[in-house]
Design a protein around this nucleic acid. Sequence first.
DNA 1: TTCTTAGCGTGATCTACATCACGCCAAACT
DNA 2: AGTTTGGCGTGATGTAGATCACGCTAAGAA
Lengths: 187, 187
Amino acid sequence: MQEKLREHFEKLISLTDEEFAFVLSHFTFRKYKKHQFLIQQGDAVNHTYFVVSGLLKLSHTSTDDKEHILLFAMEDWWVSDDHAYLTKTNATMSLDCLEDTSVFCITLEDNQKLFAAMPKMEHFFLKKSHSGYIALQRRLLSLLTSSAAERYEQLLKQYPALMQRVNKTLLASYLGVTRETLSRLTS
Amino acid sequence: MQEKLREHFEKLISLTDEEFAFVLSHFTFRKYKKHQFLIQQGDAVNHTYFVVSGLLKLSHTSTDDKEHILLFAMEDWWVSDDHAYLTKTNATMSLDCLEDTSVFCITLEDNQKLFAAMPKMEHFFLKKSHSGYIALQRRLLSLLTSSAAERYEQLLKQYPALMQRVNKTLLASYLGVTRETLSRLTS
DNA sequence: TTCTTAGCGTGATCTACATCACGCCAAACT
DNA sequence: AGTTTGGCGTGATGTAGATCACGCTAAGAA
């Protein structure tokens, strides 16, 4: 369990046992059931989360009550409403479980303490942030350049595992089309 | 000129004269004319750029020859084809000047040296990366939730200065609509 | 068991936006 | 001065995808 977290860090940086123990002391382990919310749109956001197992969705519900999915967070992903988390403002997004899920979470204060004490953790998160940024850019381009059918293909290629775990209504919402349109694309 | 760069860093971290001199030694100052390319789609990407003055566009041209704009980089912005820069792969985007532009640029190697020597620079870039990520998320949501007219409004509000500096064809391409559609929205 | 609800497909219709095709004007070459 | 080019508006028409409205099936809940 802790091993998952450690292995995850050690993909990019190396840690002694003492260092990892120190890092770990800043995190809390938690379990959630399917349908539970980690973040509710409108509420405060106290943590950022590392997914040990399970599946979450980060989504925004617009005033016309439509849900738009920013990302599906699977094993080994970091997820939160980053803006709300970093600026201590209220969430504009919700984060909830599509499956039973276990996470390590960390508060902003602990995060800052950890960074101050261990520059290499900042190095780690800079790399993570870069990958996240690049993935988002790719998705933005995909929305700008591709039709719904093409975006679906790309998603299939990039995250084949998702298809087995997420229902089509949610996939459609991630792709930016309606359930009906996605259904017609696949059938 | 160097002052611009220093002030920019000092919005988030503080630097002694010696430290700034050290930082500066990793950068090169360059000037480009309107229509010049800093990055060409398909070529290698050797630098990331800090815009001192002027205006650039980062864009991707798809196989059907349509240009899609990822961002307009104004004064004080950092810009590159990040993925190509960080992984030393070929650019999938172009970066070119909409106005005469001056920049500080840095290679990946110098960047890494700088980070290794000065953790606080890594701290600085982590914050920048976070803001970039958050801005991209906002834009993604805007594409998912809003009509062309609404996106135009939002852009007006967020970057009023852009309207004076960028022609409508490019604005349309940033918004993800055709020139004609944008024209009909505004008239 | 029966009732309710979630997931999915599908037809009919509607609409935001794209595409194609003009014309006008002002800037910029030659 | 004349000619080309870029920027912009606008009409007519086409189309991807939304919306509304069904019905079917399977899984939970009472």
